[in-house]
């Protein structure tokens, strides 16, 4: 693996570079799409840390995304905070939500963990509705354009938004890369592969799973907070079960346990929906068939299968 250090770094930096260059090449529509995809893929990368590397199948990640979204939205729009501290609070919100959920939910594993996270997320969604007078429930609220300025950068401007999204994406991608190649990351993978054996080697599974989940929640929260500031909308839909299943789908599609997989999965899923709805009114059918075809062709996800067949060094 060490022999491929250069290739690995080059690949990931190359992806970031290509994304930067695409801004100048792509039509406006796709530029804007890519900004969305990059922000949402940070959510997927967060999910990947929990699911792909630590082996925690969560059905409650919408809670972490929404924690970031609502922490930032509430503080910036309703309490009048500047966007910069609001963004940091959103990131912390995602991590804290993951910590709180983890302390209870990590008493369980496997399918029970899946259900406990699902129920906590559902309770979170209902809480947003319960505090409707503040949150405006499902309808949500708009973050004023004037408030969406971080360190002098107006996030409602297309170019600024694109490069802010790219910066967040790059930071998350490199952090993930560093994490999975760090000793902690190797322990997380060991937890996924064989928790009992890791325990005998002296690693506390609860502690490492909690680290994995909090790191995961942090990225999900960062994605939610950034999404709110960049696109100016906060709503309960983002806390619904659908937004817990989407990152799972993105990660599985791109390849669980690969650093670039979450981005690729988010990208492919976005364009599957977008292109198919241009072609036919029955576009869900096309999306469904494409998912079946993809999974039959690449069972471990796109990059997971590529790693299995051709590039064993892919992180």
């Amino acid at each position: 693996m060490t022999g491929h250090r250069g290739a690995i770094l080059g690949l990931h930096l190359g992806v970031i570079g290509v994304l930067a260059a695409l801004y100048f090449v792509l039509p406006a529509y796709h530029v804007s799409n890519l900004a969305r995809i990059m922000v949402l893929s940070v959510f997927a990368m967060g999910y990947n840390i929990a699911f792909g590397y630590t082996g925690l199948l969560s059905l409650g990640h919408a809670l972490f995304f929404a924690s970031g979204l609502y922490a930032t939205g509430t503080l910036v729009q309703l309490a009048g905070w500047p966007a910069g501290p609001g963004l940091l609070a959103g990131i912390a919100g995602g991590a804290l939500a993951a910590l709180a959920v983890g302390l209870l939910a990590l008493r369980t594993t496997g399918v029970a963990f899946m259900i406990v996270t699902l129920m906590f997320a559902q309770a979170g969604y209902l809480l947003i509705l319960y505090f409707g007078p503040l949150t405006r429930g499902d309808e949500g609220y708009v973050i004023d354009r004037a408030s969406r300025v971080v360190a002098g950068l107006d996030l409602s401007d297309d170019r600024t938004r694109y490069f802010a999204a790219l910066a967040l994406f790059a930071l998350a991608l490199l952090a993930c890369l560093a994490l999975v190649r760090s000793p902690t990351g190797r322990v997380l993978v060991a937890m996924r592969e064989n928790a009992e054996r890791s325990r005998m080697l002296g690693y506390d599974p609860f502690r490492y799973r909690l680290i994995g989940l909090v790191a995961s929640g942090l990225l999900a929260g960062a994605s939610g907070a950034a999404y709110g500031l960049m696109f100016g909308y906060v709503g309960a839909t983002f806390a619904s079960i659908q937004y817990s299943i989407l990152p799972l789908l993105w990660v599985l599609l791109g390849g669980a346990g690969t650093v670039l997989g979450p981005f690729l999965g988010t990208l492919v899923m976005f364009y599957l929906v977008d292109l198919s709805s241009s072609v036919t009114t029955a576009h869900l059918m096309v999306v469904g068939l494409a998912l079946l075809a993809l999974v039959l062709f690449a069972r471990k996800g796109l990059l997971g299968s590529l790693r299995e067949r051709a590039l064993p060094w892919l992180p």
């Binding site: 729009q77 009048g80 609220y141 004023d144 004037a146 409602s156």
Partner: peptide
């Protein structure tokens, strides 16, 4: 129900800039 803070001057100024770009 939502106590939205409105600061027309700052908002107007920034909006003008944003609109221009």
């Amino acid at each position: 129900d939502i106590p939205i803070t409105r600061t027309p001057s700052r908002r107007g100024l920034l909006k003008g800039i944003a609109a221009g770009t």
